[in-house]
Every structure is written in C-alpha cells, then in structure tokens.
C-alpha cells in the first residue's frame, strides 16, 4: 500500500517537469506545429493497418487495370505500376520508417550511452580504448559502413537497422562521455563518492540520468538523419525488399516511370521530407529549450 503511494507521489513532480517542458516547447510556434505533426505521424504509424483506404495494396497485389493512374478522388496520390494505391502505401510507409528509425536509434543508444558514461566517468585506459574504437567507427562514412554491413549480411530491414545502429552509436558515446566528464566535476558526484557509492551506481544512477536531456535532443535530431539513411539504403537496394511499402524503395522503383508518372516518386519523397523536417524542427526546438543558457531565464 505504502509503496503504491510512493510511486504516485514520485510521479507528481516528474509530471510537473514534463508540463513545464511542454510549455516551453509550445512557446515557439514552429516547434509547436512540429510537435503536433510528430504526434500525428506516430498515430498514423500506430494505426496504419486500420486507416489505409486499400489495406490489400500494401502487399504484392496487382490490379493491372488501374496501373499508373494520376491522382484522383479515388486514389489521392495516384497508383503505381501494379495499380496499387500510392496514398495507402505512403501512409503505411510511415509505420515502417518510424518503426525502423526508433529501433535503430534505440539500439545505438543502448550501445553508445553506457560506453560513453563508462569512458567518461572511469577514464584512464578504459576511456582510451573505448574512444579509439569510437574513432575507428567514426572514420567510416556512415553510409559506407552500412553498405559494407548490408553487403555481408544481405539486404533486409533488420540488417539496415543493425547497420545504422552500428554507425550511429559512436556519436552518443562521444556526447555522453563529454557530459560525464563535466558531470564528474559536480559536487553531487563527489558527494556520492564520499558516501562510498559504487562506481556502477554512480555511472548509472547519477551520470546517465543527468545526460538524458542532451541525449534526447541528439536522438530526436538523429531521427531525421536516420529516416533519411534508411530511405537512402532502400533506394540503393540495400534495405527493405519489395513489396514492403518503404518510401526509399518506392522512389527507387518509380525511377523507371518517373518521366510519365510524377506522382509515383513525388509523394513518397514528400513524405520523407515532411517526416524528417518535423524531427529536425523538434530537435531544434528541444535544443533551444534544454540549453542551460536559455533556460536560465
């Protein structure tokens, strides 16, 4: 009973802080708009199977009679070479892209954050080793690393995710390490040391929670970049495979028809653009409000 009470009590101040953050986010109109669109995108992603007009067009179904029709009341974004509704496929693509991007970033965070916190807090040779490895991964152009990985493991969305996570984690390691080093100078870390708290608890109890704000900013900004990379890889034939309605893949296929069916490539492209834009705007907004310099006021 008591512990239940405790958890509610614990939540209250957290909610208060969240409300404050939301308030700050809303102060910038553009960020506010981006926030709404982002929520909308996640909703679409979640509900995609239920809201697309032609659910069967998600798969390999062919309707030759309808092929390459321009946008109309029936097919908002026209149809593709198999006569499938581009609107349904673009809508469903949201689910695929967001899902892949969230998982990739999540995986990268899972690798990068602890390594960065350990390197920054403990220092010494552990730091040296971790940072050298990070340097090596950073010297690969991300796309090239992804290409290399996918060419070993074969193209599939899972491998794309893995490839992206592998090329993205070093950024989080660097970020968190820098944070950890400056946090280490804070007195509450020294207080914990004086108390006799173990390094494990200091790293994961004190350091990691305090790096959350910059990590969230970075992650939300990275979402855009990751979605772009997924699309690029699929475009190169190194990601999703047909008939998955992945945006990059759709544009890739549309290349063969783009001179006489502009809608086929334009709408998936716009979808990518809008989604990436929204995340970049959000990231920018986050950065502005979480920046201690602007937060002082």
């Amino acid at each position: 009973m008591l512990s239940k009470l405790v958890s509610i009590e614990t939540l209250k101040p957290k909610l208060k802080e969240m409300r404050f953050l939301l308030y700050l986010l809303q102060k910038n109109k553009l960020t506010k708009l981006a926030l709404y669109v982002a929520v909308g995108l996640f909703l679409v992603a979640l509900l995609a199977p239920f809201i697309v007009p032609y659910a069967s067009h998600i798969r390999d179904e062919a309707n030759p009679s309808n092929k390459l029709l321009p946008p109309s009341k029936e097919f908002f974004f026209g149809t593709d070479e198999l006569g499938r509704d581009v609107f349904s496929r673009v809508l469903y693509g949201t689910r695929i892209s967001l899902n892949t991007a969230v998982l990739s970033v999540g995986l990268a965070l899972l690798i990068g954050v602890p390594l960065g916190a350990i390197a920054g807090t403990i220092g010494g040779w552990i730091d040296e080793v971790i940072m050298r490895i990070t340097d090596i991964f950073l010297s690969f152009p991300p796309l090239l690393l992804a290409i290399a990985i996918v060419s070993v493991m074969g193209p599939s969305l899972q491998n794309t995710m893995l490839a992206i996570a592998l090329s993205w984690w070093p950024w989080y390691t660097r970020l968190v390490r820098g944070q950890a080093i400056s946090l280490k100078e804070r007195k509450f870390i020294q207080a914990a040391e004086a108390i006799g708290t173990s390094s494990y608890k200091i790293i994961f109890g004190h350091i990691v929670p305090n790096t959350i704000s910059p990590v969230i900013v970075q992650a939300s900004m990275d979402m855009g970049g990751v979605i772009l990379t997924i699309a690029s890889l699929s475009f190169l034939g190194l990601g999703a495979k047909a008939p998955t309605p992945e945006w990059g893949l759709m544009i890739s296929t549309s290349r063969n028809y783009f001179l006489n069916a502009w809608w086929y490539s334009v709408f998936p492209g716009l979808a990518i653009f809008v989604t990436v834009l929204v995340f970049n705007l959000l990231g920018d907004g986050f950065r502005e409000i979480l920046d201690p310099k602007t937060r002082k006021n």
Binding site: A231, G269, I272
Partner: peptide, 17 residues
C-alpha cells in the same frame, strides 16, 4: 532546416523531372 531534411536522391530525380 528544410535543406537538411530533403532526401538527396529524391531531389536529384525531382530536378531531372
């Protein structure tokens, strides 16, 4: 922000179009 949000390959196709 728009410039960094554009998928390069799509822009390329669009320009060609």
């Amino acid at each position: 922000i728009g410039a960094v949000s554009l998928p390069t390959f799509w822009v390329a196709l669009f320009f060609q179009l």
